[in-house]
């Protein structure tokens, strides 16, 4: 008989070594997340996947599943907190969904819809961030970076490179490029690198491809992010 945890009262089996989010996803339970991606080392930075484990708050993407855990996931309080976190991400950068080419394919937007985020709520920071279009095939719009660290991990773990790093702390945090000039064109990044494809928002983009997918055929046009996550993120490398 396999070991189990409960999430919102539902009994869920897990395998030794699985995190809570891995066990939940395998059992068809969605826990909102942005910095987590199956097959990548857990990072635990976005805090969106925070759940209540036996009365304590933990990041589901880093916390191991263990027998006897009674986990609360879809509670009003947790969903409210997740919405606030998402709103803070929106006001910290410059996320203009109406004209952004990632609209419909953007996880940040998908999570915002899932959490019924109706407005930004918090005062906008109006951050003054750069756009690096120096690379012939790629660009980085720092306005849309949410510091999920996925590109950093992808470059190191999947591409065998070291193109990105997160520098600074708090409000001064920023994504930096490992090149002499600090520009993308002087790095060894290539268009097919996982670091390019993994970006959950419109921060790292392949040039000249925007809007080529018609409305109605984009990832989140027909399915909410929970359904997409459960059908596409169940395979762990």
């Amino acid at each position: 008989m396999s070991e189990t945890i409960t999430i919102d009262g539902k009994e869920i089996p897990f395998k030794a070594g699985q995190t809570i989010i891995e066990a939940a996803t395998a059992a068809g339970v969605y826990i909102p997340h942005l910095c987590h991606k199956p097959g990548y080392k857990p990072h635990g930075s976005c805090k969106l996947c925070t759940v209540n484990v036996n009365g304590r708050r933990c990041s589901a993407c880093t916390f191991p599943a263990a027998t006897g855990q009674a986990i609360l996931n879809k509670t009003q309080e947790l969903e409210d907190n997740r919405r606030k976190i998402t709103q803070m991400l929106f006001v910290e950068g410059n996320h203009f969904c109406p004209s952004c080419e990632k609209t419909g394919n953007c996880q940040l937007q998908g999570v915002a819809y899932y959490l019924a985020m109706k407005d930004n709520h918090f005062p906008h920071f109006f951050a003054n961030r750069e756009l690096d279009a120096s690379h012939p095939d790629l660009l980085i719009d720092h306005n849309r970076c949410i510091f999920c660290n996925l590109c950093v991990r992808a470059s190191q773990e999947k591409d065998g490179k070291n193109v990105f790093a997160i520098s600074g702390r708090g409000i001064n945090k920023r994504l930096i490029i490992n090149s002499k000039t600090g520009l993308l064109k002087d790095s060894d990044i290539e268009v097919n690198d996982c670091a390019v494809q993994v970006c959950p928002t419109g921060a790292i983009l392949e040039k000249r491809k925007g809007y080529s997918t018609p409305i109605g055929q984009r990832i989140y046009d027909t399915q909410q992010i929970d359904q997409v996550s459960l059908t596409q993120e169940t395979v762990y490398e």
């Binding site: 109406p98 080419e101 756009l131 279009a133 491809k209 925007g210």
Partner: peptide, 14 residues
């Protein structure tokens, strides 16, 4: 100004 050109049709229609 400062935006990539392929954004224009979607951006300026606003």
């Amino acid at each position: 100004q400062g935006r990539p050109y392929w954004e224009l049709p979607v951006l300026v229609q606003r």
